[in-house]
């Protein structure tokens, strides 16, 4: 019995490690990828990990699949509820993936690139152009080395208000670190 327990323990531990590993790899990919298509792929990976974790919560040691008539009556079965939830989640996942791919097609058609850094630059320029203000320096440089933004003309109250609300937020964190 103890050997059996050890076996089930290691089986579950391996599967938990796989599920959490998939989730973490997917999260790392989503926050660190610089290409939008790779972000979609990482989302699919994280989804697979979450599904695995969910089915794993319904697993029991000496149980069989929840289908009657295969085994004799009285054998314990695994929990069917997480399986049903995961079943629908997988199909929704592919729908979300197709939607993401079509949005990527749209972005690629408009901006001609899928690189996150270039897209950020394009978006900032677009926002600044729509708001009618001069874009300030590069966001990529650290705060200390960033060139000072141009002086704010007093004729644009929205920009001044935004800057005024931004200052007290950014200064104490910079001082505390």
């Amino acid at each position: 019995m103890s050997a059996l327990n050890l076996d089930t323990l290691s089986f579950a531990a391996i599967l938990y490690a796989g599920a959490i590993g998939l989730l973490v790899i997917g999260a790392v990919g989503m926050v660190m990828a610089n290409h939008l298509f790779r972000m979609v792929l990482a989302l699919a990976i994280a989804e697979a990990g979450a599904n695995l974790l969910m089915v794993l919560t319904g697993w029991r040691g000496e149980a069989v699949a929840p289908i009657l008539g295969v085994h004799e009556a009285g054998v314990p079965m695994v929990d069917p509820i997480p399986q049903v939830l995961v079943l629908t989640a997988i199909v929704i996942g592919v729908g979300v993936q197709a939607l993401a791919v079509s949005v990527l097609l749209k972005i690629h058609r408009i901006y001609g690139t899928l690189d996150v850094r270039e897209l950020r630059r394009h978006l900032e320029l677009d926002i600044c152009r729509d708001a009618g203000i001069v874009p300030d320096g590069s966001r990529e440089a650290p705060a200390g080395e960033r060139p000072l933004p141009p002086p704010i003309p007093p004729s644009i109250p929205a920009r001044a208000a935004a800057a005024a609300s931004d200052r007290p937020l950014s200064d104490p964190t910079g001082a505390s670190q």
Binding site: L15, V55, L56, P66, M77, V78, Q83, V86
Partner: peptide, 9 residues
Amino acid sequence: FVLLHAPDV
């Protein structure tokens, strides 16, 4: 999933 006794999934 097969090893976890979830054939549908």
